[in-house]
Design a protein around this nucleic acid. Sequence first.
DNA 1: TCAGAATAGTAAGCGCGCATACTAATTACA
DNA 2: TGTAATTAGTATGCGCGCTTACTATTCTGA
Lengths: 153, 153
Amino acid sequence: MTPRDLDTAFTDADDSPGLLLWQVTNRWQAAIRLTLKPYGLTHVQFVLLAALTWLGSEGPVTQKALADQAASDPMMTSQVLRALEGRGLVERRPHPQDGRARALAVTEEGRALANRAVVAVEACDAEFFGTLEEQTGAFTRALRRLRTASTQE
Amino acid sequence: MTPRDLDTAFTDADDSPGLLLWQVTNRWQAAIRLTLKPYGLTHVQFVLLAALTWLGSEGPVTQKALADQAASDPMMTSQVLRALEGRGLVERRPHPQDGRARALAVTEEGRALANRAVVAVEACDAEFFGTLEEQTGAFTRALRRLRTASTQE
DNA sequence: TCAGAATAGTAAGCGCGCATACTAATTACA
DNA sequence: TGTAATTAGTATGCGCGCTTACTATTCTGA
């Protein structure tokens, strides 16, 4: 197929890294959604729960700190954490030092769920990116470079 | 930082290709959104308008055919095309052969807008993926492989 | 000390991506 | 030919990603 009415530099839409990135991410999201369905978690819920579990339950973690760690925006973080709190997976106490902030903590149930779900997610990722074989490292490195580059702008 | 309470295979979250893919795509979407703002187009609107312009205005193009070409889902396609029709960028006539379908056509104004916007989008992509330099080809190939692999499942 | 700037968190709202369900028209097949 | 299966398109609804605007609290510096 040849474009007649569109002045594009690409012969085929399959050569556009942007479009491909978009399509691949949509498919990856669908795979993750399917994987997490048995655990009753959405992707963002899983990411925040896992990140909070990662950060540990000793020091008081604010929503801002969690959002930074998970690269999630503050609004989404606030909304999802309240949902997780409603399910008893997370606690949101007032922060001892900062009156504006929340002191987050994973419950025992939340930690257990995170650890069960993370196994499934990593298996899903391994399957999804498995087709890259020995090029997985280069692909991951490229993604890391793109992320930091677009942050600097 | 070391995970104490999460049993993960990754030392750092930056090693997960899935998380990186998600973050990079979010930043790319933000860049595209900013680029298309002066043209009054969202990303999906641009993709569908450009794809329809690409397909040409001679034969009757159905929404299904356009959705397949653009890898957009039928619901989104329907909704966005009605918005584009409201702005006079697209026409949605009844299909001459198939009573269920719509015969899509770009208006002159729509074609002109698509051609102006595509320049900006390709410049945005060039800037965004420019940091990959000579590895851009390998990156694009990896994305293409991931897309087809996840389709087969 | 105290007024202004910065920060943590939330409300409301918009467009996207997708799932489910439905209507109307077409196609396939017995 | 007539009925079943398929297909094009749309309504509804949910969660995501983000923007704007707002409150309450903390920090900063004259």
